[in-house]
């Protein structure tokens, strides 16, 4: 009996993971076909980085000091746009309503959309990091493992809050302006920890401090993961 319960749980978990993967693949496929978010966010992020580099001036030390902050500003702005747009395909033709009528859990829907948004932000970061390095003269390649962890955890935190709040504002007429207003106060701890960890890795090389910031970032992500997953069902109900 114990074995069959365990087998049932295992099958249920495997099915949920498969559903999450399908939902994420669906969102990424929709984005690959429309390219709307990719073009808008890439262009926007690149412009942000160029403007910030120009504003700081030619002094190499100042530029290097501002590199981590500039990278996360570009990622944050792009992340808001991506989160906001991630529900556009859903709202067309009532597809999201149908998605919510399928026999799948609300948490599964949230995790599927989160996975897609996170993948998108990580890919964006992969493009922006070398661009930022070139514009700001910063070496992001010193500790690639630690930097990759920081970007993965920072973008995860951002995607968590973005996916959650985008669902909350998806049906509102003023969603484009409301989303950042609601999101940024909540995302501040994630951004603070991500910028600080990146800054320690790129500039001062104090890896112990960087790891401390990463632990804090992991803590924030876990809290947001539990809260957002649990509350998503309430947010999407009518």
């Amino acid at each position: 009996m114990r074995l069959s319960v365990w087998e049932g749980t295992k099958q249920g978990v495997a099915r949920d993971i498969s559903t999450i993967a399908r939902l994420a693949a669906k969102d990424l496929r929709l984005e690959i076909r429309s390219k709307a978010v990719t073009i808008a966010t890439l262009f926007f992020s690149a412009i942000v980085l160029v403007i910030l580099a120009l504003a700081i001036g030619p002094e190499q030390q100042f530029l290097r000091n501002g590199a981590a902050g500039a990278l996360w500003v570009a990622l944050a702005f792009a992340g808001v746009t991506a989160a906001s747009q991630s529900y556009q395909h859903e709202l067309e033709d009532g597809a999201f309503e149908q998605l919510l009528l399928y026999p799948i859990g609300r948490a599964t829907v949230f995790l599927g959309k989160l996975a897609a948004n996170w993948c998108f932000m990580v890919l964006l970061a992969v493009i922006l990091v070398p661009l930022c390095g070139a514009l700001f003269g910063a070496s992001f390649a010193q500790n690639p493992g630690l930097l990759a962890s920081t970007i993965a955890l920072g973008t995860l935190g951002f995607a968590l809050i973005g996916t959650f709040y985008a669902a909350l504002t998806a049906n509102l007429r003023a969603r484009e302006s409301l989303l950042p207003v609601l999101m940024f106060p909540v995302v501040v701890p994630v951004l603070l920890a991500a910028v600080s960890a990146t800054s320690e890795i790129v500039q001062s090389g104090n890896l112990t401090l960087a790891r401390d910031w990463l632990r804090l970032l992991t803590g924030f992500d876990l809290i947001y993961l539990v809260l957002c997953t649990a509350l998503y069902g309430v947010v999407v109900e009518e």
Binding site: L30, H89, E92, G94, A95, Q98, L101
Partner: peptide, 18 residues
């Protein structure tokens, strides 16, 4: 309940880009 019910709306309910 959703395991036993299938609702077909008047229009749409599908992803246009799929």
């Amino acid at each position: 309940v959703r395991e036993h019910v299938c609702y077909a709306p008047v229009l749409g309910g599908f992803y246009g880009s799929l």
